[in-house]
């Protein structure tokens, strides 16, 4: 199976309607500082769980703050 990329994460963010322009997001910057609030983030995680058929437990969330974090995390979970 292909590795998950930042582009896959951006699709999940776009699907969650989290920001106006996903292409403006920086991969190594905190999502919370780029307009992704707690509700949006729940939507992003839900979309990732659904897209990659994985489960993201609440206790893992603290370490998922950037797009790069999510790329690495989802690749490890797959």
């Amino acid at each position: 199976m292909n590795a998950v990329t930042a582009s896959d994460i951006l699709k999940a963010i776009e699907k969650a309607n989290a920001v106006n322009d996903v292409n403006a997001l920086e991969v190594d910057k905190l999502l919370s500082d780029q307009g992704v609030d707690s509700l949006d983030f729940s939507g992003v995680l839900f979309n990732l769980e659904e897209a990659f058929n994985i489960e993201i437990p609440d206790e893992d969330i603290d370490g998922l703050a950037t797009i790069n974090d999510l790329v690495q995390y989802v690749n490890n979970k797959k």
């Binding site: 707690s38 509700l39 729940s42 939507g43 995680l45 839900f46 769980e49 659904e50 609440d58």
Partner: peptide, 12 residues
């Protein structure tokens, strides 16, 4: 309320 759990359940 675990907002994420309730959201996931509802959305699915």
């Amino acid at each position: 309320m675990n907002g994420r759990a309730v959201f996931n359940f509802t959305a699915s």
